[in-house]
Every structure is written in C-alpha cells, then in structure tokens.
Design a protein around this nucleic acid. Structure first.
Lengths: 175, 175
DNA sequence: GTCTATAGAAGGATAGAC
DNA sequence: GTCTATCCTTCTATAGAC
C-alpha cells in the first residue's frame, strides 16, 4: 500500500479512504485490467474477412497489444490461478455458443476446407491463445535462451506475428 | 513461514534453524522443483525415433507429466518473471547449439521434408512448449470456459496429447 | 478530500531452555 | 535437533485534525 501510494503521489490513508481495504483495491485494478485482454478477441469475430485473414488479423493485433502490455499475461494467469472462483463467475455470464455460431454462419462453405469443427474448437482456440500468450508469459526464459543463442527477443516477437499465422493455417488446412 | 511449518508439522523456529532465512528456503524449493520441468525435454533428443515420433513422444510425456504436476507451470513462470536474473544465470551454463546439431545429425534427410531450419527453431520450440504448457498455466480460465460450454477439462487434456502432435506435424510438413 | 499519527495484527528472525 | 517465548519490523487499517 505504501509503494502504491508513493507511485500515486498520495499517502496510504487516502488509498484506504477510496478503497477501504487492500483487497478492494486489488479487485478494482484486476477488473479494469482483465477486460483489456479479452476485448482483443471480440473484433476478430466481426470483421469481414476470410478465415485465414481473421487468423492473421488475430495474431498481428493480439501480439502487438501484448508488446505494449508485456506483463499482462503473467499477471492475469497468476491471479486466475490464485483465485479460480473469480474467473468462473465472470465466464458464467458469457455466451460462447454465440461465437461458434457466428463463425459457422460467416464461413459456411469455407469451413469445409479446414479441420475446424464444434468438437475441436476448444483445442483450436486454446492453441491460438497459447501461441500468442506464451512468449510473454515465459518471456524471462525465452529471452534468456534467445540471448544466449544469438537471437533477439524483439525480432522474435515481430517474426512471430506471421510465423504463428502461417503455422496455424497450415495446420488446419485440409488437402 | 507459519503455514509452511504447520504443513510440515514443525514450528517456525525449526524452519529457520534449517534454512536461516525465508529467502533461502524459497530458493531451495525453487531449485528442486525447476529441474523437474526441464528434465522432460532432454530425453526427446536421445530416443531413436523419427521426427514425427519424437513430436508425439514429447506431447504425450510432457502433458502426462504436467497432469501429475498441474501447478508447476504457473509457479515457474511467475517466479521466472519476478526474478529474471536467476533464470538467466542458469541458462548461461547450457549449450543449446548442441541440441540443434543433434537434431540436424539424426534427421539429416528427414529434415528436407519439414519446414525446420536453424533460423526458425526458436519459433518452433516455443510453439511446442506453448501448446503443452498453456492449458496448465491457464487452467482456471480454460476449465471455466469448458465447463460452461459442456466439455470436460480432463478429457480435453487427454485429447490434447494427440491433437497437439497432429497439429504441429501438419504445420511443419512440406508438400 | 487529504494529511499525520498511531493502533493493532502478522511476519521474519533469534535467544535460550531442554 | 526441537521447542517456547519474544524481539523487532512491517503492514493494514483507523482516528482525528485541517
């Protein structure tokens, strides 16, 4: 609380005046921050793009967003792990069925050319998220290894936007 | 320290007798635990298997290991993020060049049929790790979504061992 | 609303008996 | 080696002046 007060240029007493307890303050911060992460997923479903373009769009936008907020993933993952009930309650109010129906409708014939079904959509979506998020969650490890082997982490991230898209598209294309 | 002492069935004083400070205790725990995670990567390079079999072997073994230690990823990721210097020092003493040379040697002709080069090996390796680790790091979020949409997290993990392997192999195969 | 001062609890660490 | 008792610091939270 002292550190936060210092950063805010006020004192501890005022923090408690506004938030009453440390717990309330943390929740306020968490909820403000958590929203930003998931907002980035939504527009993907609305853009008038082909499936492939949507995948490219997602990686480009999501990784760019995380480049500006590199500590967000580890913060959110850690907090969701520490307090799973909170995220369960948030999820309960969301309609995921809707997203899949949108995709099915928008890409009816297109879907025939890809290995994407209602059954494997959880595997696919978590794979997308994994590929985008992990470089930031594991940043300390990855940038240490890259540094050691003569690569640059920033370049690695730039490359990843297209590598990830190419990788995923190739993986799901029927032929 | 009180909680740990309780779990161990001793008292705080004895913890300090053995580890002197809380920091020393934490380091002892971290080093003991961190090793287990990376041990799982090593045998992949030694087994006499084709590249595809190695990929299948990796996901099967690594995800099985994490099923038994589901909280390991988030603990390690969080701690590496909190203290990047520690992991940098550990990495400094490892020879990654060696691993790539092993693969190049063992799979000389085979490699011609895959999109795997010295240049994109960091992208590839981090993608493998991401796909395996993320379901556990993001367990709270993923199992909340799966629950909500009528899937089962345990089944999801079992399926993932083969889904991940199929996905990755398809992604890197030239044709 | 914003501050200073301080209460009250908890945490890390040590002293000293056995 | 293991315990109890206790010191000292840090932390959350509140009281009360302005």
């Amino acid at each position: 609380m002292q550190d936060i007060a210092n950063h805010a240029g006020i004192n501890k007493a005022l923090l408690h005046y506004y938030y009453r307890t440390k717990d309330h303050l943390f929740n306020a911060v968490f909820e403000k921050i958590a929203g930003r992460m998931f907002e980035k997923f939504a527009p993907v479903f609305d853009e008038h793009l082909t499936l492939e373009e949507k995948i490219r769009f997602f990686f480009r936008e999501h990784i760019s967003f995380l480049q500006k907020n590199p500590r967000l993933p580890i913060f959110l993952l850690n907090e969701m792990n520490r307090n799973p009930e909170r995220i369960r309650k948030i999820i309960l109010h969301m309609d995921f069925q809707k997203f899949w129906l949108k995709i099915e409708k928008q890409h009816k014939e297109e879907l025939l050319r890809y290995n994407l079904t209602k059954e494997n959509i959880p595997q696919f979506m978590t794979t997308m998220a994994a590929i985008s998020v992990f470089p930031f969650a594991g940043r300390a490890l990855i940038s240490a290894i890259l540094e050691k082997t003569g690569y640059d982490f920033k370049e690695y991230l730039e490359e990843r936007k297209t590598y990830a898209a190419d990788f995923v598209i190739k993986a799901i294309k029927k032929d």
